[in-house]
């Protein structure tokens, strides 16, 4: 990358807003900053999406500062205080059947949730994007072969396929992540292919072909940036599903293994006491609900923000 000839001097705070909403950026960095700022303003103006963003942000902060937020060790047992109701004895959300503080377990559990979400979000969509754009751009028999593969994966119910993978790989959080990734990519491939079909004959693609660019250069540099927004939207909307699948695997005992404080496994453990001690299952349930809602709200908002048709008008 070359550097910009015009040095962009970032001005003081009063001028910062003007600098960020400039119509004539003076460097590559400036142009990117303006784009980012415009997106941020749109997110900020969309109240529900911003709420979703705040929820996700708190989840991340919770995972980072877990040792500071937790009141006890997540796995510290105190059988004398088992099944304490919320609010009693300093246990904010009560304790479970082994006397472990539910709040602390939820706080540490956010790390596991984020780990699953993070890894799945960076593997499945990327793989799906690659398969979908290559199939869509090249067409012909490559398209046929790749899309039939996608069809095969799509034909299985997601959780059943994940179960089969976990059964083959052995129970554990890593297996759960791999299983979810393997089942999550086909829809992304479908979206990416559909998107590619609409842009592969665009004049700007023809123009770069005329410049002698190779197939992969065009796919990565020109097709991907345009597929990315619909993929990102789909990923955020899918996050809720991914968390639920992970929780489902945990609930079935095939995901995280005890004593790891995974939210789904916590619900599973709590279901034995659900009538007398509702909080044991309800608290992690609430956590899953709130985070899923956060991702859904953000995803809906991103759909509006990243839609190029809307941002151009």
């Amino acid at each position: 990358m070359t550097t910009a000839p015009v040095k962009s001097n970032v001005p003081d705070r009063a001028g910062l807003k003007a600098w960020l909403s400039s119509d004539a950026p003076t460097s590559r960095g400036h142009a990117r900053a303006v784009q980012f700022y415009m997106g941020w303003m749109k997110l900020y103006e969309n109240k529900l999406a911003f709420l979703g963003f705040l929820i996700i942000l708190s989840l991340v902060l919770m995972a980072i500062f877990a040792p500071l937020l937790a009141t006890t060790e997540p796995n510290a047992q105190d059988l004398a205080k088992r099944l304490t109701a919320p609010g009693v004895d300093g246990h904010l959300l009560g304790t479970d059947e082994l006397g472990r503080d539910i709040w602390s377990r939820l706080v540490y559990g956010s790390r596991i949730t984020l780990l699953i979400v993070g890894i799945v979000a960076f593997t499945a969509p990327v793989f799906g994007l690659l398969i979908g754009t290559v199939a869509g751009y090249l067409g012909g028999w490559v398209d046929q072969a790749l899309m039939r593969l996608v069809d095969i994966f799509l034909a299985f119910p997601k959780l059943i396929l994940a179960l089969a993978f976990v059964a083959a790989l052995g129970a554990g959080i890593e297996s759960a992540i791999i299983a979810i990734s393997l089942t999550a990519w086909p829809p992304y491939a479908r979206i990416a292919r559909a998107e590619t079909l609409t842009i592969r004959n665009a004049d700007y693609i023809s123009a770069v072909r005329l410049q002698g660019a190779g197939v992969m250069h065009i796919i990565v540099g020109h097709v991907w940036p345009l597929c990315l927004s619909s993929i990102i939207v789909r990923v955020t909307l899918d996050m809720a599903g991914i968390i639920l699948t992970a929780a489902g695997l945990g609930f079935l005992g095939l995901g995280a293994q005890p004593p790891e404080p995974e939210w789904g496994a916590m619900i599973s453990a709590g279901r034995k006491f659900i009538l007398d001690h509702w909080w044991v299952a309800a608290m992690p349930g609430m956590a899953i609900f709130i985070v899923s809602l956060g991702f859904n709200l953000l995803g809906d908002g991103l759909r509006d923000i990243l839609d190029p048709k809307k941002s151009q008008s």
């Binding site: 950026p25 590559r28 142009a31 665009a202 004049d203 700007y204 023809s206 123009a207 770069v208 005329l210 410049q211 002698g212 020109h222 940036p225 345009l226 190029p308 151009q312």
Partner: peptide
């Protein structure tokens, strides 16, 4: 690739011939 340095083309619709995400 060398052919590209002999012939280039300008397209009809300036709204469709520039990549919307490229500066």
């Amino acid at each position: 690739k060398a052919f590209a340095r002999k012939i280039q083309m300008v397209f009809q619709d300036p709204y469709a011939s520039l990549h919307p995400r490229h500066t």
